[in-house]
Amino acid sequence: MEKESLMTAMKNSISEVLEMMFFLPIDLPDIALSEGLWGSVTGDILSARLGFSGPFSGYFIFCVPEKLAASLTAGFLGRGEDSITENHVTETVTEILNMIAGNTFSILDNQSVFDLDIPEMVSFDDIRNRQNSSDNTIVIPVNTLENPLELQMIINT
């Protein structure tokens, strides 16, 4: 699978999910900007992981600052941020990843079947410390008005 096609599908999927379900305007900057993505973020960063298998296999990683995740959750549920729980936030983060991943494959190739695992929360530090080869990793940085977020796809080799 061509990396360029995967990147395009991932970007389109992110736009559709965040704008249609979360009414979140986004900007997809050049990939080179991603290196300093987390520098300006204060507070914790939440990460979720979702494995997939099909014509090729691997996993997605979705990283989002906790503050932005809380704001997205409040909007998603139509509630004030003061009334949402940690559980609401983690469920929303994993659901965002689930929707983006499934939608990516629908956009990429709706003739092929990809099986998605149940998404799970993982440690952001573990993600950062893991060195993946750039050959099998696609990173899509996303800017929002509040904070950045990031989607990665790591393909098993």
């Binding site: 379900m21 939608n103 079947v113």
Partner: peptide, 27 residues
């Protein structure tokens, strides 16, 4: 109501007896 969008998977849903499917994200 699912993120699954492949034609084969949708055909499987219908063959099993689903009346229809709605793909996430939805309006």
């Amino acid at each position: 109501i699912t993120t699954e969008g492949s034609k084969q998977r949708v055909a499987e849903f219908i063959a099993k007896g689903a009346a229809d499917y709605i793909k996430k994200p939805f309006t």
